[in-house]
């Protein structure tokens, strides 16, 4: 139990670090020095100490958005395994609870955006719910396919060390699922090629534009929530990728953390070498994820 709690604490402490890694990688590609690795921690502390500014249009929903969002993601962090070791809470069907907690966070973020009455934030909210229409079935199908392959229906079961032993054993199926989840991962975390976290043109943003009017304290909750979400969905990828033999808890954890840093580097590379898709193309991109999951599913039907 202590190790499980320690894992949770590690998730909560380490997740903002990955954003620093992404920014360093992007800075490297751009030939810049870049912001410090711990920049997000500095930002969070600075924001927590700042005052807040509220539009006269908003109601308490605007304040509730970041709070419910962060709470839902924190509870979701209780369900996610760490380095192939069981999570704090693990039960049959926790996959469903996990995805719906992400849905709850989305619902309140969207409502907080609509609460401002700004057309930009309405635009972002509209895109967010549209992309979820494709991303959610893709994520569900991928995890259900993994469930069928591994014979487990809990996240900790699916991603435990004992189950996925090698990529070779499962063959192309695992590549397909990895691809599908990777696309969902990029979308849900609003990274390039779906969304650009760095753009400053409101018209082209999705997630950033939804939180345009949030500042100070509330923004700290939102940034921290985004960092946790990155870690949670990243675990789904790394759980597949690193599912090899065990070297004992301590070493496994170090390998897993290094894996997550590698994932952040990969995201940084993707952001540096890819351009953003046109908004109209993004549903097609997400349907690729759906198609990959369906093909993987068909492969599991072999006798």
């Amino acid at each position: 139990m202590y190790t499980k709690i320690l894992q949770l604490v590690l998730i909560l402490i380490l997740s903002p670090f990955l954003f620093g890694v992404i920014n360093k990688t992007k800075a490297f590609f751009a030939g810049r020095k870049g912001s410090p690795l711990l920049q997000l921690y500095y930002d969070l502390f600075k924001l927590l100490g700042k005052g807040v500014v509220y539009s006269t249009t908003t109601t308490w929903i605007f304040i509730a958005g970041p709070i419910v969002g962060l709470s839902a993601l924190t509870v979701a962090a209780l369900l996610i395994p760490f380095a192939g070791y069981s999570a704090v809470i693990s039960f049959d069907g926790d996959v469903i609870f996990f995805i719906y907690l992400l849905g709850l966070a989305r619902f309140f973020t969207v409502l907080a955006a609509l609460d401002t009455g700004s057309s930009f934030e309405g635009m972002g909210a509209s895109r967010e719910v549209q992309f979820a229409v494709f991303a959610e079935p893709a994520l569900f199908l991928s995890l259900a396919t993994l469930a069928r392959v591994t014979g487990q229906v809990s996240l900790s079961g699916i991603f435990s060390k004992a189950v996925i032993t090698s990529w070779a054993e499962y063959g192309p199926l695992i590549y397909l699922i990895f691809g599908a989840i990777f696309i969902v991962f990029l979308t849900e975390n609003s990274r390039i090629p779906v969304d650009d976290p760095n753009t400053h043109l409101e018209l082209t943003m999705i997630h950033e534009v939804m939180v345009l009017d949030h500042g100070g304290f509330d923004l700290a909750y939102i940034f921290y929530g985004a960092a946790i979400k990155f870690w949670l969905l990243g675990t789904l990828l790394m759980g597949i990728f690193l599912g090899t033999s065990s070297y004992g808890w301590g070493q496994d954890c170090i390998i897993f953390i290094l894996g997550m840093i590698l994932l952040a580097v990969v995201v940084g590379v993707v952001e540096s070498v890819f351009a953003r898709f046109r908004l109209l193309k993004i549903p097609h991109f997400l349907i690729i994820a759906l198609a990959l999951a369906v093909v993987a599913l068909i492969l599991t039907m072999r006798p």
Binding site: G49, G51, V52, V53, S55, T56, T58, T116, S118, F217
Partner: peptide
């Protein structure tokens, strides 16, 4: 944390 902070009402950005 926000106990002492003054909350400023403004227009939507």
């Amino acid at each position: 944390i926000l106990r002492k902070v003054e909350i400023k009402p403004v227009l939507t950005w």
